[in-house]
Nucleic acid binder design. Structure first.
Length: 632
RNA sequence: GGUUCCGUAGCUCAGCUGGAUAGAGCAACUGCCUUCUAAGCAGUAGGCCACAGGUUCGAAUCCUGUCGGAAUCACCA
């Protein structure tokens, strides 16, 4: 309809305005709720060229459209806005089309370019937490939204299974895990702990010893004991200590942190961990075996968590495989002059002309940095999937700079797909008390949280659900649907880019802008449809009211919303749309009677309208990774 | 300090490719279950859209500056 109006105006610009106009000047928008009309044309742009008042200009265009487009039944000009009323027949037709369209709102699968969506990508040294939940739900949902837009999607993650962090857990386990009567150290099997939890426990254990040792070293330094310390370190300590004089509290804290880092680097436990990393890189059999075993524990633990989350992956990348990649690309970049080499042998790129800094891409000892392997991995992925057009990286916004640099480097290296790489940058999740801090034990564990929300859903459902006759399995499935749905929706309804506050109490809320509210509406409709038991084929209501029209309009927007959510990589767009739809439906539901309606044509129309609302709810929620029940 | 992002009701968030009187939910208060699921609906109250300029017929939205908050600027990952 918008397009029709636009083209009519553009075609007849000559006679209407005595001049041609650009498409941009034809601004159509939805009419405000509180005035009569469905579509509104902004007429300010035409006032000057028509040499008359906004009122007259509006009337002239209104008369023209009324004559040209039969579906337009009336118009009104208010304050420079031409409000067009579109006849009910048109909206009924729209509903018919929606009802007849299979997979309404979705673009034909695999009809558009292949996109890889990377998300999750955890370290294997500790369990997943609240921040990972936002990441996973977001990545999964964006993948589904891109599929709905017709793209072929490859869901992936890169598992950070190597590096000093995993050596820390391994070392701590080796040193500090108690040995039981059968001579074994702690394992998931003999402790009953989830593998990721067990490994995480030893990461914390390492940190504890690490800090204790560092503190002892600082105490020694403060007492003037610098045995076995290089003069550089000693001088640095003295320099930093002196620098504290006269500084404010914040600056002193910053310096203290630097001193702590200095001391940490001198600890024997870190040295041991570093030695272990060297052995790992040399594929020392013993270290490698331990690494394989402990990583497997983590993978097994993660698998349980992912299953509960309802997310999955099509292809996995492991950093232990990819960390060697990228060096050949550095070589190529050196030859083509994109990179330059310093005297010490380190390789850099100068991005100052692009408003960024100089960035290291290869260490002086020839080993890779993060950037090196990210370049290599990207290229690898395009080799692995020859139809791949782009990659979406779901990674927190603390890495904004990293990705800006990465994409720019890839572009400079001449990879044409670099412009199709997108950093889906999302904000951190804060608690009501502020940031999550592992040191202060305020990190919200993913497993615990999911268990908690399901438990709450259980209590609420027992209290007010319609669950007579449900088996235990059905009840459990329902509560999981409600609890996890609520959690997902809570994390997805906020614009991904924005930092958000996570209030545990609000995340299990059932009223207002929540998944249970939406799920509830779906269940209500299903109940209606089950009771109606009539053939729903003919749509020919004697008349329709405003609340019905508003619902059709909202349904009509669904394809546009999916496109918008895809373009913006934003599940929040889908969430907010669904909430609007459900609110409109509930208003309608509460204001008319459906099953007891005596006018059969009207009754049938309302049932079909309801059915399509339920279908759109279900599709929309599916794009968020949320299931909807038939009763609750 | 440089760069980037953010600042909308008491709280959590929409609205941001400029358009009419800035919207929801939560919390507070009023009503509505002899009728299809009250996890619902209707209503009341709550705002110098951080601040100051500028562009425009028109600014929460665009530009500049100020203030406040966050992230980042490693031969860490």
């Amino acid at each position: 309809m918008e397009n029709l109006i636009k083209s009519k105006i553009l075609e007849n610009a000559e006679s209407l305005f005595q001049t041609t106009i650009s498409e941009q000047q034809v601004q159509l928008q939805k009419t405000r709720k509180d005035v009569e009309g469905d579509l509104t044309l902004v007429i300010f742009p035409f006032v000057k060229m028509m040499r008359c008042s906004p009122l007259e200009a509006g009337a002239k265009i209104g008369d023209f459209l009324l004559k040209e487009i039969p579906a337009i039944s009336n118009y009104e000009v208010v304050n420079g806005f031409l409000n067009l009323v579109i006849g009910n027949d048109f909206w009924v037709e729209q509903l018919k089309t929606i009802n007849d369209t299979a997979n309404y709102g979705l673009v034909a699968p695999n009809s558009k370019a292949a996109i890889m969506v990377e998300y999750s990508s955890p370290n294997t040294n500790k369990p997943l937490h609240l921040g990972h939940l936002r990441n996973n739900f977001l990545g999964y949902s964006v993948a589904e939204i891109l599929k709905a837009n017709g793209h072929k999607v490859i869901k992936t993650q890169i598992i950070n299974d190597r590096g000093i962090h995993i050596c820390k857990s391994m070392l701590a386990w080796q040193k500090f895990s108690p040995i039981n009567e059968s001579g074994e150290r702690e394992t998931p099997q003999n402790t009953g702990l989830k593998g990721d939890k067990l490994v995480g426990k030893y990461y914390v254990e390492f940190d504890k010893h690490f800090n204790t040792e560092a503190k002892a070293i600082i105490t020694n330094w403060e007492q003037g004991q610098f045995d076995a310390v290089s003069t550089e370190v000693k001088d640095e300590f003295i320099r930093l200590t002196e620098a504290k004089a006269g500084k404010d509290e914040k600056a002193v804290k910053g310096i203290d942190d630097k001193i702590k880092d200095l001391a940490k680097n001198q600890t024997s436990i870190l040295k041991e961990a570093k030695e272990m990393l060297v052995k790992w890189e040399a594929k020392d059999p013993e270290v490698y075996a331990l690494w394989t075993t402990m990583n497997q524990w983590v993978y097994d633990g993660f698998a349980v968590t992912y299953k509960e989350m309802g997310v999955d992956f099509d292809k996995l990348y492991y950093e232990s495989d990819t960390f060697i990649l990228g060096k050949d690309i550095v070589e190529k970049g050196l030859n083509s002059g994109v990179f330059f080499k310093k005297e010490d042998g380190s390789v850099w790129i100068d991005l100052t002309a692009d408003g960024l800094d100089k960035k290291l891409v290869l260490r002086s000892d020839g080993t890779a940095v993060y950037m090196t392997q990210d370049m290599g991995t990207a290229v690898e992925r395009f080799n692995d999937f020859n139809d791949l057009s782009g990659i979406v990286y779901t990674v927190g916004n603390e890495q904004d700079y990293h990705f800006k640099v990465l994409f720019l480097i890839l572009e400079k290296l001449g990879y044409s797909w670099a412009k199709n790489c997108f950093h889906l940058s999302y904000g951190m999740v804060d608690l009501p008390e502020g940031k999550m801090k592992s040191r202060e034990g305020t990190v919200v564990d993913a497993d615990d949280l999911m268990e908690e929300v399901v438990k709450t859903a259980f209590e609420m459902t027992k209290e007010r659900g319609h669950i007579e006759g449900l088996s235990d399995d059905e009840l459990n499935a329902l509560c999981k649907m409600i609890g996890l749905g609520g959690l997902k929706y809570f994390l997805l309804k906020v614009d991904p880019k924005k930092r958000m506050k996570f209030n545990p109490a609000e995340s299990v809320e059932l009223n207002g802008n929540t998944a249970p509210f939406i799920q509830y509406t779906h269940a209500r409709i299903q109940s209606l449809l089950a009771k109606s038991a009539m053939d729903l084929s003919s749509i020919a209501p004697s008349s329709i009211n405003d609340s019905e029209k508003e619902i059709i309009k909202q349904l009509n927007d669904f394809p546009t919303i999916i496109a918008e959510a895809g373009k913006d990589y934003s599940p929040a767009v889908i969430a907010n749309y669904s909430y609007e739809l459900v609110k409109l439906y509930n208003q309608f539901y509460q204001s008319v009677t459906i099953l007891n309606e005596s006018d059969e044509s009207l009754k049938q129309f309302r049932l079909i309208l309801s059915k399509n609302v339920a279908t759109v709810i279900k599709t929309a929620m599916r794009l968020l990774g949320i299931d909807v029940p038939n009763r609750m």
